[in-house]
Design a protein around this nucleic acid. Structure first.
Lengths: 237, 237
DNA sequence: CGCCTAATTGACACCTCTCAAGATATGTGG
DNA sequence: CCACATATCTTGAGAGGTGTCAATTAGGCG
């Protein structure tokens, strides 16, 4: 899930080290961004912005994790994913001026650089070359959304959806001799909100998967023993 | 559904009329695009590109309509929506270089301007100001995907999903004294593929909606009589 | 140790899918 | 204009999956 962004912090607000390659902003633009942005720390469960709000600012995540979700009046919630350091949040809305279409809430203590939309737009007017970085960020957002649509729309059953989600997570896991190991700090309820399924169903399917020797879990660590079988469950193989 | 794009043809390949406002490409860039793009006609049911293919070109839709969808190995299909004249297809993939994540197929005879990725990338290198238009297009793609996620993830039941879809369509309909009138050329099967529901279920829910006096249909024209009640069905009100 | 959250498990109802049959519409060729 | 073929819509019956409710267990933390 956007694992690349966790490695190279080259977001629109993140040009802060080394020399700028062709892809990045000029030194002048970089130092200007540095002087415009405001960094701050915030605890877990801080709401950065809420869907349907007018876009006030963009947020560059320095450390910590942020949960991106959508909420319905009926109390239903769809989790889009977890943003990692290096990602910029609220870009599309800040650029188009339309309301935020998602809600962003920290899941751990975070350090965040913030830029108000007004200043951001003015900066863009002075540094049109920044649009290139912007476009690349937006592509990632599109890709994330497409992956979610694939998860929700192309998977008919709950086991299929969970299998797909786990496979996505495997991309960011570490390979051991017992299988792919990955950390999952989400509760069953939250996993359910990732795939549009109830909390209890997640529990049941995890149980089934364990019985089928597809995976094992100890606390928040998850070990995918049989990747191939999981792919079959996901309907990918 | 991106109704704005149907009005002003200001896509990355569509700068072809009037004088260029601040937002648009320079005259030089416009004429360069004009000379680079290749226009052609194609019949209905022409596949422009398929998901997982390497991004070969971008496509600017001049006339006609194009169905955007995702397909699974299991034969399941998710329709993302119908692209209208003025939209550019395949932008995100062409820019990032990652495979197309959707499939595009004409649903009517179309006139299309095409630009190979190589030429497109070279053009961008010569005209970095085009990134601005690009970013705006990508924002629209993001918004479309978000709307779809909302339709699939936030609506629990089939009636809710159909109601949400109809409400989206209402934005592009015309208001009469009997209600909002709109044209829908999709079959029940295709509507089902828009909302992840079977063909028969779509028929049944339409029947229910008619019984509840929410709407009436004659051929391919649909009249939403009671918008308010439909919003309640959608869980929006 | 006690509290609280999360996980687990079972029972049951409901929704939706699938399969099947028939009706209606649309288009084509004689 | 009619007969036919094809596509689409309609409706019913049955089965399976999933949500909901409820009760219990496990785990984390002060």
């Amino acid at each position: 899930m956007r694992s690349s962004a966790t490695k190279d912090l080259d977001g629109i607000l993140g040009a802060s080290k080394n020399e700028p390659p062709i892809d990045q902003l000029s030194w002048e633009a970089q130092s200007e961004i540095e002087s415009l942005k405001v960094s701050f720390d915030c605890p877990a469960s801080t709401v950065l912005f809420i869907e349907e709000q007018a876009p006030d600012s963009i947020f560059y995540l320095l450390t910590g994790q942020v949960k991106l979700s959508m909420n319905s009046c009926a109390g239903r919630r769809q989790i889009l994913g977890i943003a990692n350091p290096g990602e910029t949040l609220g870009l599309a809305s800040a650029l188009s001026g339309s309301p935020y279409d998602i809600t962003a809430e920290t899941v751990s203590p975070c350090r965040i650089a913030k830029l108000t939309r007004t200043i951001f737009i003015e900066f863009l007017a002075r540094n049109p070359s920044a649009y290139k970085n912007l476009a690349r960020e937006l592509c990632l957002d599109c890709a994330r959304a497409c992956e979610l649509v694939r998860r929700l729309g192309l998977a008919a059953t709950a086991p299929e959806r969970l299998a797909r989600l786990l496979l996505e997570w495997c991309a960011g896991g570490s390979t051991t001799e017992r299988g792919t190991r990955l950390l999952c700090s989400l509760t069953h309820g939250e996993i359910g909100e990732c795939i549009g399924v109830s909390r209890e169903t997640v529990t049941r399917i995890f149980h089934d998967f364990k019985c089928q020797e597809l995976l094992e879990s100890r606390g928040s660590t998850l070990i995918i023993s049989d990747l191939r079988a999981l792919e079959i469950c996901a309907g990918v193989a």
